[in-house]
Design a protein around this nucleic acid. Structure first.
Lengths: 187, 187, 187, 187
DNA sequence: TATGAATGAGTATTCATTCAT
DNA sequence: TATGAATGAATACTCATTCAT
């Protein structure tokens, strides 16, 4: 409901009605409306990170880790489009902004580690890993956004492939060195 | 005030007080609070597009146009950080969302024209120009966002240079062919 | 506009707009909205009384005067339906009520004189003339009301005839003694 | 409060304060101010009709039914003067007018049935029963009005008696045929 | 655990009126 | 006479939160 109608338009009464319980019960389980929203955002954020971690599990090549992380992120967001709207909203309200800034930083930090490894192995150009990681995160989330906004004009496999290619190329990587199953359709 | 405190936290009384006029006068000039917000968002959006257009004026090389467009966008946003927050908020409310979706589409469309030209001239890889344009827009706006969020960790010249490089490389362009004054600091 | 939309629903801006002048001018001609309304009500009230006076001018027979007064009242109201709504509204607001109470009293008093004359001449039953006058006024105004409410279901000549008959009979008068041109259709 | 101060002058806050509850509770029980007013008007209207019905219960003679209906109406209104003001106000606002028009129509219709019976029995003159019913309703409500306006100048028994006499005579009835206990004081 | 009546702070909007020009 | 920008008091209604049961 938060995602569909927005945080302000979703009233506590709407929430409890759709849950089939009385209003008072809401406050037995949640401190207040804000707390519920934060819980949802945090859970979504953590699920996303878990999905990323699982995707690169066992993978040792840094470029593959980057590509697989991109793929996992795009898939997660496309499968949880509604929840993702929450993350975007959260970023625009002072009291929720930190939730998202942290998440972005962590996501970039996670990615920067692989980039650093890739730099050490001479697989990408030698620039600030964190800055480059942000560029990757940027591309991933923007495509997630236009996908949910445009109503999935893009097929997820193709999109994942394109984003991986674009990012790796942007990092100066040799695409032929990456065997990510879906990351070679374009260019 | 909308940017600093948020749309909901900014009361009409706050607006008129800070303008030093009486409350009724607000409704002489604006139909309501929503209308004022829309006006501001539209003006900001249009200013940004104008800044982009002006930046590439007279430039014929498509890669240069892309690089200069990126530079202009980043500079505009960094100089209008506050207003840019409005655009982000607008994207999360149903009633304002269309303002932003349109703007994103137009921005991508503008960029896609230069990419198409570049493809025709064999300067970038041959993939869907619109999709690649979105990747460019993505990177630009993400960096704009983390810059306004993180409080300008990045120096604007360096940032612009990096984003241009990353994007052009992502498009498969030969960076040495671009003479954009600030587009070669990194990598 | 007061009659059509009600006193409260009619804004000063509506009045001046329909007059094609600016708002400030309203206050050059009228002290305020209330004053305008009072003027209209008074004028209407006075017009009605004038119409009644004119109708019985030169008529000496008290029953004829009563019948002609009834006829004139009904005709006036049916020709000024809109204005009559004002009178009804005025009667329900404290600050305007006196305008109408007075009018009712005066109307009854006027009528009671003829009734008194008729009693003296033995033409109607011997009861309190003022009370009987009120009964006459009652009937006249109620029919005026249902006529404007029901959208003129009743033809004015017939109605006038009926009301005169009903009232005169109610006063115990001998209808055959009244030569009022339209007062013999019923009963 | 509506009756004393008027619909507009009575604020919701006044209502809840006088009830000793909080403002929000008003909207738990009533959709809005208008809805409360409508409820009150409807209840009053229905109570009046019930009082009329009860008064003529078991009475078979049409003239008696008419006289007893008149008596009941006058008594109800004089006992509920305040509420009756609401009915009058309602008649002057578009959104409430239908409540009263209907009530007037129903009241006239109820009365017209007895008049029709009386006509069939040759007890009153042969004219349109509905029109004559309206004349009766007119007289009843006008006297109710001047009574509430003038602060009960008339003693209720006398008034009831007079109105009955006036109406029955107006209908062409033989007053000596009516045994209504209070219907013979005047004339 | 669960209910839902009760609370009351919070706010956008309207509109009669004023007044400098 | 005429304008219309400027004023600001006034008010219905919402909704998160509490709490007795």
């Amino acid at each position: 409901m938060f995602a569909n109608s927005g945080y302000y338009a979703t009233r506590v009464i709407d929430i409890v009605k759709s849950a089939g319980v009385a209003k008072g019960l809401f406050y037995w389980y949640f401190e207040n409306k804000e707390a519920l929203f934060i819980q949802i955002v945090q859970a979504t954020r953590d699920d996303l990170r878990r999905a990323q971690a699982k995707a690169i599990e066992g993978e040792t090549d840094p470029l593959e880790r980057i590509a697989k992380g991109i793929d996992a992120s795009l898939r997660f967001i496309s499968e949880n489009e509604q929840l993702y709207v929450l993350l975007r909203f959260a970023g625009t309200e002072d009291r929720f902004a930190s939730l998202i800034e942290e998440a972005t930083q962590i996501h970039a930090l996670d990615t920067s580690k692989h980039i650093k490894d890739a730099i050490d192995q001479g697989k990408v150009i030698d620039a600030d890993p964190l800055v480059m990681a942000h560029a990757v995160v940027a591309t991933v989330f923007h495509f997630a956004r236009i996908r949910s906004a445009a109503g999935a004009d893009f097929e997820i496999d193709e999109l994942s492939s394109f984003v991986s290619s674009f990012c790796l190329r942007g990092l100066g990587a040799d695409l032929s060195a990456v065997s990510h199953p879906k990351a070679r359709a374009t260019g």
